[in-house]
Design a binder for these strands. Structure first.
Lengths: 235, 235
DNA sequence: CGGGTCGTTGACTCTCATCAACCCTCGTGG
DNA sequence: CCACGAGGGTTGATGAGAGTCAACGACCCG
């Protein structure tokens, strides 16, 4: 965690020691397990130590929409410190090791160490940028481009986090979860994946995805990594 | 602005005076005028004094998607203080009076007055929550519910901001802009609006919208105002 | 009065959803 | 050791919702 924030802003020795003395609690969450439930009052913040997780919401008619995917190092619940009621669910995609920090401890930390607050705020802003791109994805791209774009985003985020190579990674999502991420049905996702394979844009082996020509995939996807703000190191 | 932040967190006299002495610059922006352009380096933060504005992005194929609507009091560009390159456009919907604050001044303010930083951060988090709901809207609702939901959101935000009544307000958007907000075509938006009129869910007169039965509209829209975090006053 | 923007309507098309069946793989227990 | 069941993936047939194309109408402003 310290490493991550140090990438965002220059940290003082005091900042670092404050981070290290922050009281936290570790917890494993199995796949599908809830890390946060919509409607619950906020009690703590959550940080992924290992594993993948996803945020989702459900419409009144019971349709589910996944609104983001999170990887180790992501704070999936910063709003836990500042907002009162959770407006969405967070669930584990794979087995997760989570770090939970008390709401009040985070709030105090931000007030006493504003530089750390800014580092976390940057994360919130980047999250927001990714949400905006997802609105564009489901609102204005066809089924092929939506899925291609999702693969590009995950590939580059995995690579930046040092989890894998962007042109070859394990995607531990069911086709139903992919469908819920891009606003399609599982059946259609299946057909599109098959078609992407036929076009040699991807190669699949189980849930392992290989991208033989990264440039070609980003082109057809209309993927521009600017919205990920990868340059966002120290100011 | 001071009023707004005071709603978010309890402010000290020092916080208030720091806000009041913040150097700013006022500027009018005509409809369609750019407040921020994608790809530009960040130089300043923007706050709407009067008028409406919208954020939007364009796909590689040239399709536009509006990702949020903003009203007076909204900081439409807090990321200007912390991120380097703008990842989307912000344009005026109606004639706008904007307040621009230098990037560095905002960053300094946050460091010297963490309580103000938290107040602004709350805004960022609520923005994020609204983005998530928009992903659900375009991803998992049909055309009718999408437009109904947009009307519900704008109605309640207008009312909370004291701009108008939620069940009767002027909606200064063209049908094309509505289409770009909900991921449909202008033609289809037209048909749906007509159909909503036929079902007595709304009454239209030019761009004025009357909602005769608020409860009924929120029901069919599947609208739940939780995601707007209206309770978010002082902690 | 004329041109431009926006709204409206009809005819036709096509992408994606729906429904339904079948398959594969893997873990479990008899 | 094999049968079974469950979850997930695959495929086909059909249909609905939204897109496209095109024309016309209404309104506003210079």
């Amino acid at each position: 965690m310290e490493r991550k924030f140090a990438r965002r802003r220059a940290l003082s020795a005091d900042d670092r020691s404050a981070l290290r003395t922050l009281p936290f609690q570790r917890q494993s969450v199995p796949p599908h397990g809830f890390i946060l439930r919509e409607g619950e009052p906020s009690r703590r913040c959550a940080l992924i130590h290992s594993g993948l997780a996803y945020r989702n919401k459900t419409t009144a008619e019971g349709m589910r929409q996944i609104v983001s995917i999170h990887i180790p190092g992501d704070m999936v619940d910063l709003q836990g410190a500042l907002l009162k009621i959770a407006d969405h669910n967070v669930q584990a995609l794979t087995p997760c090791e989570m770090i939970f920090i008390d709401r009040q401890a985070v709030a105090d930390l931000i007030l006493s160490h504003p530089t750390l607050g800014m580092a976390m705020w940057v994360d919130t802003l980047i999250d927001g940028s990714i949400f905006r791109e997802w609105i564009v994805n489901v609102g204005r791209r066809d089924a092929h481009a939506r899925i291609e774009h999702l693969l590009c985003e995950l590939g580059t985020r995995f690579e930046m986090a040092g989890l894998s190579d962007r042109d070859g990674f394990d995607l531990p999502m069911t086709q139903e979860q992919i469908a819920d991420s891009v606003g399609l049905t599982p059946v259609h996702v299946n057909r599109v994946l098959k078609s992407l394979g036929g076009d040699r844009l991807i190669q699949r082996n189980r849930r392992y995805i290989r991208i033989p020509d990264w440039q070609k995939l980003t082109d057809v996807a209309g993927f521009n990594e600017r919205y990920l703000h990868l340059d966002q190191a120290t100011v």
